[in-house]
Design a protein around this nucleic acid. Structure first.
Lengths: 258, 258
DNA sequence: ACAAAAGTGTTTTGGGTACACCCATGT
DNA sequence: ACATGGGTGTACCCAAAACACTTTTGT
């Protein structure tokens, strides 16, 4: 991690640097969603881009080339590890971006990336991922990365704003159809934590009673004999997610929407 | 078309043959769904694969390399044109397949494809497409292609069975969330035609009255002052799809499910 | 005692589902 | 006249949505 930390700064082509063989015209870019303090965030990285003798600060999602012997899922897990230190995290491809000019929307960005290209274009596969920011040791976070508010994303490099829009769309869809919330919750959680998480991601609010009536029908949500401690109000019951029960009881058309 | 017809037979790498520049490690494979006579079909192509002095007949989805200057959507439209003669057809990417050994599941298949590879692996983007078989001039269909029943797909080459499964899953999902049915219906259609189409794709049956109650709520389904002719029963009213009204009235969570 | 979040029921409304008969046309 | 698919209405059930008060803890 420390070695990587040094090298990745302003080094867009770490693979070439390390002489690791990669495929030439395909890359993976990762939109890493993080949840913390009722806020939905996204990891972006800064790059210093020379332009006319000056240097611009620009932001993009972390990405990498695909190595000769890995699947793109492995590529994205590798990026996640490099950026956050986390392993065995859920990653999911959501779309391929193949505009031949996607790297040339601004010429100074293209000039910056050009030395690391073997071809004059790169097709990229967008992945998204979900992490709970409480799990992240932020000292592991590489220097030029930051967690940006998902609702206040500014202009990004290349086609990365499009990539973000598609990632967010897919995240929301998947959250309604797969038990992804639990990737973002601690192992033991309260129903209010779960509700707030949906509210953060869908930018809305739900009625507490209706929400509970609905989630209480989920047989894989296990109420524990344990309650919160150290809170200055009535402590809430803790729940956990039982994946086995989920797999056994899920129906064709299951829908997490509340 | 005729020229292509000749060349494509047993020629897995038409691009090299024609000296058209392509990206080296990325391709597009197309699952083309066709609907006809209340049956859902898929276009597959035969290839004669040498193995130990014998020749096997194997089937795969049509695919191609990505040319230097095109998006993958353009690649898939090109494949569609080559295979069916149709242009301006809806195509949609659904998943990237990147197993480094995806072409090596059977060694004789790998030996067959190898001469056309510049790299020892190819990442492929799966696309699906929908066409109404009444629109296809079947004399245009290249010789080694056939329309196979979507419910009776046998063993295919490489990882193409996985590609099919994912395509079918995505097709069904999209049909419930986007107005794709109309890609498969004639411009003027009856409600029963629309119902039969859903039934074919979802392999189920619906109650006629409930189905009509539901679709009658769709403001973009326009009843025409026209009825079927030449049928030996009460002629049905014809409807058309109004895309403008659809765009204007669609809601965030629209759902075509019946 | 007060602040703060947990936890709990009822009513209304609309959509899903199940179900059977008459109609218009061609042969 | 008969065969064929077209077209229509009603009753029941359940899920979604709206809505307010009491409970338990820490300070």
């Amino acid at each position: 991690m420390n070695t990587l930390k040094e090298i990745t700064i302003n080094q867009p082509d770490i693979e070439t640097f390390l002489s690791i063989e990669t495929l030439s015209s395909i890359s993976v870019d990762c939109v890493i969603f993080g949840y913390d303090d009722n806020k939905l965030k996204v990891l972006i990285r800064s790059e210093y881009i020379p332009n006319n003798g000056e240097v611009y600060l620009a932001w993009k999602f972390p990405g990498n080339k695909v190595r000769k012997c890995e699947t793109i899922e492995e590529t994205s897990s590798r990026i996640l590890k490099e950026q956050t230190g986390l392993e065995n995290i859920f990653v999911k491809q959501f779309m391929v971006f193949s505009d031949p000019n996607r790297l040339r929307r601004k010429m100074y960005e293209y000039e910056w990336i050009k030395p690391s290209l073997t071809d004059d274009r790169v097709i990229t596969v967008g992945f998204y991922s979900l992490i709970n920011l409480n799990d992240v040791d932020n000292s592991m976070l590489i220097e030029d990365a930051k967690w940006a508010d998902a609702y206040e994303i500014k202009e990004l490099m290349f086609d990365h704003n499009e990539i973000f829009d598609e990632a967010f769309k897919k995240l929301r869809y998947d959250l309604l159809h797969e038990p992804l919330v639990f990737e973002l919750l601690p192992v033991k959680f309260t129903l209010t934590q779960m509700q707030k998480l949906y509210e953060a991601i869908f930018d809305t609010t739900y009625d507490k009673r209706n929400y509970r009536r609905k989630v209480n029908k989920m047989p894989y949500l296990i109420p524990l004999d344990e309650i919160q401690t150290g809170v200055s109000h009535k402590p809430a019951r803790l729940y956990s997610f039982d994946r086995d029960i989920y797999e056994k009881t899920r129906t064709e058309r299951f829908d997490f929407r509340v």
